[in-house]
């Protein structure tokens, strides 16, 4: 079982800053010009007293590497994605991020065995308060797996 031994393994936390410029670029790339994300004055006069972060932006942060876990850059299928937030995030916040291998399992499909790798990506504030959890499920087809095992 390709990734079985990695279940429960975590990366070392990485400190990320929610950067104004990166968030503006992201909001523009998804076609969402919500002033709450990108207009500094609008953010300052909102109930948050700051701009906030688009809900899927956290996927792009740095969560560190799990030692020895190599995920192929080609041939993977993104099966599922879940974001769970405790509260909205503000531009400028500093967040500790790390990743955990949640599960690895196999299922028989029409075109051979499919392998499922699920990872969590966790964000915490500097006082270790939980802010969000992302769950990402990647599917590895038998064809890709054969190449990896050579």
């Amino acid at each position: 079982m390709l990734y079985k031994k990695f279940i429960g393994k975590t990366s070392n936390p990485v400190l990320n800053t929610l950067e104004r410029g990166a968030i503006k670029k992201f909001a523009e790339s998804i076609g969402d010009k919500n002033p709450l994300f990108i207009d500094e004055e609008f953010g300052n006069s909102s109930s948050f007293n700051e701009n906030i972060v688009p809900p899927t932006y956290t996927q792009t942060l740095d969560y560190g590497e799990i030692e020895g876990l190599i995920v192929p850059s080609k041939g993977l299928i993104h099966g599922e994605q879940i974001f769970e937030y405790s509260r909205p995030l503000k531009v400028g916040e500093k967040i500790k991020c790390y990743t955990i291998v949640e599960n690895f399992y196999e299922k028989e499909g029409r075109n051979g065995t499919l392998s499922f790798l699920s990872r969590n990506k966790i964000g915490e504030d500097l006082e270790d308060n939980h802010l969000f959890k992302i769950t990402e499920v990647l599917i590895i087809t038998e064809a890709v797996r054969k190449v990896m095992e050579v």
Partner: peptide, 29 residues
């Protein structure tokens, strides 16, 4: 990118982000 389509889905809720927040957002591609 699947994540780009997911981000577009979030635009439905984007106009309401001063009234509340997205507590959970799951997607199957």
């Amino acid at each position: 990118h699947g994540m780009l389509t997911m981000a577009k889905v979030s635009r439905l809720i984007s106009p309401f982000l001063e009234q509340g927040f997205i507590k959970s957002f799951s997607t199957r591609f």
